[in-house]
Design a protein around this nucleic acid. Structure first.
Lengths: 334, 334
DNA sequence: TTGAAAGCGCTACCAT
DNA sequence: ATGGTAGCGCTTTCAA
């Protein structure tokens, strides 16, 4: 592989001139053209490790999500990527599988690349994670939640409030025997917060005892929804509405209703969460809580860019919480 | 940030001993314990750039897919990640947005990290991409297709044959006026190959002129499917079966049938491609072509690991094509 | 506008 | 089992 020195010799200039050409700094037009021609002809590709080591700057942003196959999080990643790409930054992606320990493990490895910023999902992290982040002095943005005291910055919404809003909608529609279908893992905090919003809704609206089925590992699938609904019906046959932890399970519930000949919404209302594509297209279309995952990613990226820039100029890390709107979308299933 | 030298001094050993502890090489147990304690106490995190520069090895595998939000590709990435993670390798992910030019651009940036291997999607690449890959002497695996002459290795299946198999199924079921619903972009080669399989099916089975609607940018969505189906009906009202480029569009078609009161499959058969979750759960369940995206990723990872290992020992790049089975899954929609 | 030298933090190599 | 030295390929800094 040719190095910068090879290019320099071939072009009859010093390494520094080649470096300046690559960085887009002031170089005489004729010299620049000659250097670029040599680079092209030799197929020279700069070595990023050497560059990082020398400059003390890295081209990476770390992004850790519970699951990359969930459309929610892949949209957020897309938004983040779009925001930071324009500044020449690369994503270093990791999949925590909803485990804070896995998050810590991934972070440890990734911090070795001295990233310019870190995007995390949620606000529940191990103390090891917090310590590492603190020592690395890297800007951090937590997403998909609004912690009272973020590490540095946060962009998201209260899952409790969002679920509560859906409960209010169901109550207004006249449903009184409302069940909740969620996952069985204690690690999916956003799912647990939604369940909490459901419970607070019951209490505030005076709707009696909770009817909760916790079933399936996150990310929750359509199958989980259908099977959880079966359990819900067995336990509380007179249920008249189901609130689901995600649109995936809501679709599963809807199909199970179909199979059993349960009319939706006249005999059973079904509510989802997340406004996934399928909810807009199925029949009947599913009422849900809409958030903007792309915006969460984009804003997280902008926050990280600003913080990285501030850090370069020696400014201390700022604390900031940015709320993202959510909205109850009423469709035919409620 | 503490460096290895700081750790060494604090522990009263040389940098090399610290390096060996980190690499898990032979070090006296007492020394190792002392070094590890210092590392823990100082919060030392090794600098990956320095390590790579010095060792000439990188911890990266590059993976380029058309779209990360498509469940197909995110499953493949998952499989790849699982395979290479165990060997301490990190994915450097990129989203080409179905554009070979974007693929070339991303690859140029990513090759700067001197990856141990590269996973590409499909077999259609710019000459710039091929040249770069060739000069970088990095092992390459192409996925989701079976090119006659792969760059090095390939793992996938013939999209033409897979679509043809579905056509044979539709023919056996008695459908004779079969339409095809796909995307409008010329860049999604796998989509085009499926259309080719459809056309070959028509010809071989003696089914008359093609009824093709090309509509929507990849990745194809449920909306695209529904709208394309509307166009198909307008152009060829007597169509009795629709073959779709993906399960996403098939679901859109199915819902459009529902809206129009078109009975499936008695009045209109609907076939998908990819065996997405929704096809197994909707009503009627959609017949589709099942592939194993996870296995594609896993096998690509294994190939890359083997090739990277071989390269370390000076072996030349091998050529290999590995076929992945596909299967027509017959459900209620045909 | 360009160049020379120093050094970033680590590992390979050879010693001991 | 452990240490010293050299050097990976680049950018920073200073000088011309």
């Amino acid at each position: 592989m040719p190095t910068m020195a090879d290019v320099a010799k071939q072009a009859g200039v010093s390494k520094m001139t080649v470096s300046r050409v690559l960085a887009g700094r002031d170089v005489a037009a004729t010299t620049r053209a000659r250097v670029l021609a040599v680079i092209e002809q030799m197929g020279y590709v700069p070595d990023a490790s050497a560059g990082s080591l020398s400059s003390g700057r890295s081209p990476f942003i770390v992004a850790l999500v519970p699951s990359m196959s969930s459309s929610n999080f892949s949209d957020t990643i897309h938004g983040l990527n779009a925001a930071v790409n324009t500044h020449g930054l690369q994503l270093l992606l990791g999949d925590t599988d909803y485990s804070p320990d896995q998050e810590e493990r991934l972070l440890r490895v990734m911090l070795a690349h001295r990233p310019e910023g870190v995007m995390l999902t949620g606000s529940y992290h191990t103390s090891g994670t917090r310590t590492m982040l603190d020592r690395a002095k890297v800007p951090v943005v937590e997403t998909w939640d609004l912690p009272r005291t973020p590490i540095h910055q946060a962009v998201g919404f209260s899952n409790v409030e969002a679920a509560f809003a859906m409960m209010r909608h169901l109550h207004e529609r006249g449903y009184r025997r409302i069940g909740f279908v969620g996952g069985a893992t204690r690690l999916d905090r956003r799912g647990l917060d939604r369940q909490k919003g459901y419970r607070e809704g019951l209490q505030t609206l005076g709707l009696g005892a909770p009817r909760v089925i916790e079933y399936g590992e996150s990310p929750i699938t359509m199958s989980h929804g259908g099977e959880a609904f079966t359990q819900l019906l067995a336990a509380w046959p007179d249920t008249d509405a189901v609130m689901c932890v995600s649109d995936m399970s809501a679709f599963g519930v809807l199909m199970e209703c179909h199979r059993r000949g349960i009319a939706v919404p006249s005999r059973m209302a079904v509510a989802g969460f997340g406004d996934f594509e399928v909810s807009r297209h199925c029949f009947p279309r599913i009422s849900t809580v809409s958030v903007d995952p792309l915006a969460i990613g984009r804003i997280a990226g902008e926050m990280l860019l600003a913080a990285a820039d501030a850090r370069k100029h020696g400014a201390p890390a700022q604390t900031q919480r940015r709320a993202i709107d959510f909205q109850v979308i009423v469709r035919e299933s409620t």
